[in-house]
Design a protein around this nucleic acid. Structure first.
Length: 274
DNA sequence: AAACTCCCCTGATCGC
DNA sequence: TGCGATCAGGGGAGTT
């Protein structure tokens, strides 16, 4: 499940090599990504350009090029962005290949096709359907206690608020559970019931779990790997996610799993009681 | 506004 | 050994 730390790890692992050479060819599969056909012509317009910057906002990667267009990538559930030798074996479910003059290739692989690979004018990226409504990035952006406080003025529960990409961009199912455990807050607590000190604790917890996960090169629970095919090791640092029945590290109570909005939430019923 | 349901999609897993 | 059902969760869309 690629969330902010996994996408950031992909971004960093692209940097050795991404800016070298120019794009020489584009190939796309016949399958749609997220129910929309891949825009072959828009991607082919990148031929001749070179990558100049690799940026990230939440779970989105923005790869700027010298022609004024950017590649916008979202990994969805099962997406992989790989920078490999041109001749490396082609993985099943490879949907986009950008060949580089260096003999390498940027490949997008996504079995479930929930992801996005699109090209936009760099200047228009902030106004795109994908990015326009995104909340601040909690690592690089302006996600502060005041922003979180305002977002918590709601009857929605904490799980729903933190998963909402309009509130803060980059948290997914894993890191919401982890941040709420860190802050000792119940995922079922309503936003408006959270008081000042708890809001500060939650804000700090979000930063802490995300920074730790980035340091650990992301969480490789199922099949997440970076752009060079390397796994992360943050799964060894998880406190609650997929830890049903294991003892809470703080109080030894067994970790519980509940379902909220059709998604699993893991938490300690004792030290996250409110 | 927010909750609800349904949908997309493949691979792993499980029961028979 | 295979085969269908179930589950996983990133989103979006439509309805209440």
């Amino acid at each position: 499940v690629p969330e902010l730390p996994e996408v950031e790890t992909v971004r960093r692992s692209l940097l050795p090599g991404l800016y070298d050479g120019t794009i020489t060819a584009v190939e796309v599969s016949r399958f749609p990504l997220r129910q929309r056909p891949i825009d072959r012509a828009a991607l082919e317009a990148l031929v001749g350009a070179r990558f100049t910057e690799a940026r990230r906002h939440g779970k989105y990667l923005m790869l700027d090029t010298s022609c004024g267009a950017s590649l916008l990538v979202h990994l969805g559930m099962s997406g992989r962005l790989l920078l490999v030798e041109r001749e490396a074996p082609l993985a099943k479910h490879t949907h986009v290949v950008l060949s580089l003059s260096t003999g390498r290739a940027l490949r997008y692989v996504d079995p479930r096709r929930f992801g996005i690979v699109r090209s936009y004018r760099t200047a228009s990226l902030p106004a795109t359907d994908e990015l326009a409504a995104l909340g601040p990035d909690p690592i690089t952006g302006t996600f502060d206690v005041a922003t979180l406080t305002a977002a918590l003025e709601t009857e929605r529960d904490l799980k729903a608020v933190l998963l909402d990409q309009k509130v803060v961009a980059g948290l997914g199912n894993i890191y919401v559970s982890e941040a709420l455990w860190e802050a000792k807050l119940s995922p079922r607590q309503r936003g408006e019931g959270v008081r000042g000190p708890q809001i500060r604790a939650l804000h700090a917890a979000i930063g802490k779990v995300l920074r730790r996960a980035v340091k650990n090169h992301g969480t490789s629970l199922s099949d997440y790997v970076d752009a060079t095919g390397q796994s992360g090791w943050n799964q060894d640092a998880l406190r609650v996610y997929e830890k049903t029945g294991a003892p809470c590290r703080r109080c030894r109570t067994k970790i519980c799993r509940i379902v909220q909005a059709g998604r699993s939430t893991y938490y300690c019923p004792t030290c996250q009681s409110r």
